[in-house]
Amino acid sequence: MSPSFRAGAREGFRLCLPVSVGIIPWALVTGLAMVGAGFTVVQAMGMSLIVFGATAQLGTLPLIVAGAPLWLIVATALVVNLRFVIFSAALARPLSGGTLAQRWLCGYALTDGVFATTLEHLRSEPDPQRRLGFYLAPSLWCALIWQTSTLVGVLAAGSIPRNWSLEFMASIALLVLLVPMSKVRPMLLAMIAGGALAVLLRGMPLRLGVMVAILGGIAAGFAAEHWQARGASR
């Protein structure tokens, strides 16, 4: 580790400390929700380490519980995570100085919070090693906080009675994610279309309605943005 990597690591760590505290409730809730869905401690922590993504974990829980086909579960998780493709594209240049192994690690540890907090600085920092430290140190720190807090949630869930319906916390968590998105009009339309279609198409075999609803929601948001832009230019 070069001195500039370490200097960047210290700086990035300090900048992301508030974000890392903010993920604690999410991790606890994800832990509680996995046990609420019927997972054992080992299964829950296995999912947490392998998947390492709250939205993908919380979003697929109802499908796993309902016994949906494997490809549909994976496809749903992929759609929820498509935002990471965009984040990854934004990080490609700043992190291009890392070795292949380092870049895979950067990818595995990519989270919304660290991405949002570090991107501006990463774009303006000229030293590649310093950029790598600046991104990687807080990312790995957040992963550590995430896994420990999830474990606390998983272990605590065992002593909470089942009729408290802790799995509802997963729904609340997803709603809390939706609230800031809904402030953008086309995004709100994508949500309304996606939600309404999912309800209307609930009778489709293999829970395929979920996938059709997601595609319909994307189309609605995209169309709304298009019309909005046309209306504004008129």
Binding site: T55, T76, M191, L197, V199, R202, G217, I218, A220
Partner: peptide, 21 residues
């Protein structure tokens, strides 16, 4: 890239709304 921006919102709503109504 533009269309992908709507994927998370549409997907999260498609998962959570049926559970609520």
């Amino acid at each position: 890239l533009k269309a992908l921006r709507y994927a998370p919102a549409a997907a999260l709503a498609a998962i959570v709304v049926p559970d609520l109504v």
